[in-house]
Design a protein around this nucleic acid. Structure first.
Length: 135
DNA sequence: GCCAACGTTGGC
DNA sequence: GCCAACGTTGGC
């Protein structure tokens, strides 16, 4: 099982929007590194849902329910998307500030490459962030 | 194939 | 609104 972190601007698509829909295509990713990460996703993998720009914090956990398939919003046929479903809303959001301040997360890919919209997490990083959300 | 110019993302 | 990081485009 692998762990991921995926970003969305909440005024476009928020975690609550995902909860309302029940299941959604994670489309519109137009970056090769992010695409590679999505291709590596397997059914049952878990991902943090991170709100960029507004909130700037991890707010929930979602599950990959369908592996990479053509992005329905893409007409060129070059890009893929995965489908996700909400799993658990974090009791308390974990802010970027808190993640940056925590030495246990110093190697997080997202912290090192802030513009990457889909990035991997180690199991330890994932569990650490979940623990932070429960304090 | 290199690199300058430009556009976009995302945090502050 | 600004700026850093970084991806893309286009001229050579």
């Amino acid at each position: 099982m692998n762990y991921w972190l995926m970003k969305s601007e909440p005024d476009v698509f928020s975690y609550d929007d995902l909860v309302e829909k029940g299941k959604a295509e994670w489309d519109g990713v137009r970056n090769h590194a992010a695409q590679l990460n999505m291709k590596a996703m397997r059914k049952g993998d878990l991902s943090l849902f991170y709100h960029s720009n507004i909130g700037i914090e991890a707010v929930g956990v979602m599950e990959i329910v369908e592996e990479a398939a053509p992005d329905s919003t893409d007409e060129t046929g070059k890009w893929i998307a995965v489908h996700v479903a909400p799993k658990e809303k974090l009791a308390k959001p974990v802010t970027l500030k808190a993640m940056k301040a925590d030495p246990a997360l110093a190697d997080m890919v997202m912290l090192r490459q802030s513009r990457l919209s889909v990035s991997p997490l180690t199991e330890a990083q994932f569990k650490h962030i979940i623990a932070m959300s429960k304090v």
